[in-house]
């Protein structure tokens, strides 16, 4: 039962207040994309042991979607941030680098 802080309302949420939404920062591929691109968008997901970026919704609270950068092995949470971004904010990347030098997630590092 994780605790994640909602970046919108500032509440430290118990996992029971949240709905998990899987991997963050996916790029949508629609008509005109190749089979490989579409397959990657719809089905292929990272399942790392370590640093991971996830989508969460404060479902039983303010209702907002946000992203969490956390470690799937140690359960450390490096930061949460609004979902309206295409890539993680620099301060979250820095926070991860402080704790996990040399980390890498897909093409983010």
């Amino acid at each position: 039962m994780l605790i994640l802080t909602c970046p919108y309302c500032g509440i430290r949420c118990d996992e029971t207040e949240l709905a998990a939404g899987g991997e963050a920062h996916l790029k949508r591929f629609g008509p005109g994309s190749s089979d490989e691109e579409f397959e990657g968008y719809l089905f292929m997901r990272a399942n790392p042991k370590g640093v991971h970026f996830e989508r969460w919704r404060h479902a039983y609270g303010c209702g907002k979607w946000f992203h969490a950068a956390r470690n799937t092995a140690t359960l450390e949470v490096y930061g949460t941030y609004p979902a309206q971004v295409h890539e993680p904010p620099q301060e979250v990347l820095d926070a991860i680098s402080t704790r996990v030098p040399g980390w890498r997630w897909k093409d983010v590092s």
Partner: peptide, 13 residues
């Protein structure tokens, strides 16, 4: 309703 919110908040914000 949740699905509409999801698309509006996370894709076409």
């Amino acid at each position: 309703h949740a699905s509409m919110e999801e698309w509006l908040q996370t894709e076409w914000w």
